[in-house]
C-alpha cells in the first residue's frame, strides 16, 4: 500500500524455503538430462531467439531448478524449437524435450495437476 509516498520493495532474494520446486521435479522425472546441465551457456549463445529477445535457455533451466517459475510461461514461448542448442550442448542435455516438458508442466499447473 502506498500510503506515505513510497511502497515496500519486493524482495529480490531467492528464499529457498518458500519456492515451489514441483515443476523442476516434473521435468527431472520426464527428462533426466535436465539434471546434468553445467550452466556453460552454449545453448543460449547459439539460440536463435536469444539474439532478438532476452530469452536464455540456460537461465530458464536454472530458474526452474531454483523453483522460480513466475516468468516461465512468458519465457518458454520464445523458443522456436530449432534444436541448435541440443546440437551444441557438451553434456548431451535433451533441450527440446525439456522445452516440451515445460509446456506440459505449465498445462498441468493450470489444470491443478501439478
Amino acid at each position: 500500500m502506498n500510503k506515505f509516498g513510497y511502497t515496500i520493495s519486493r524482495d529480490n532474494q531467492i528464499d529457498y524455503d518458500k519456492v515451489d520446486r514441483s515443476m523442476a521435479a516434473f521435468i527431472e522425472k520426464n527428462e533426466p538430462t535436465f539434471r546434468i546441465c553445467i550452466q556453460c551457456g552454449s545453448c543460449a549463445a547459439s539460440c536463435s531467439a536469444a539474439n532478438f529477445t532476452r530469452f536464455s535457455f540456460r537461465k530458464l533451466c536454472l530458474l526452474i531448478r531454483r523453483g522460480l517459475t513466475d516468468d516461465v510461461q512468458k519465457e518458454v514461448s520464445k523458443c522456436m524449437l530449432c534444436g541448435k542448442c541440443r546440437l551444441v550442448c557438451p553434456r548431451g542435455v535433451n533441450t527440446r524435450n525439456i522445452i516440451l516438458n515445460v509446456h506440459q508442466a505449465l498445462h498441468k499447473t493450470t489444470v491443478y495437476e501439478l
Binding site: 506515505f4 509516498g5 513510497y6 515496500i8 524482495d11
Partner: peptide
C-alpha cells in the same frame, strides 16, 4: 530521498 524510502523500510521489515 523520499522515493528511495521503500528500500529503507524494506530493510527494517526484513
Amino acid at each position: 530521498v523520499k522515493s528511495n524510502r521503500g528500500y529503507s523500510i524494506s530493510s527494517s521489515r526484513k
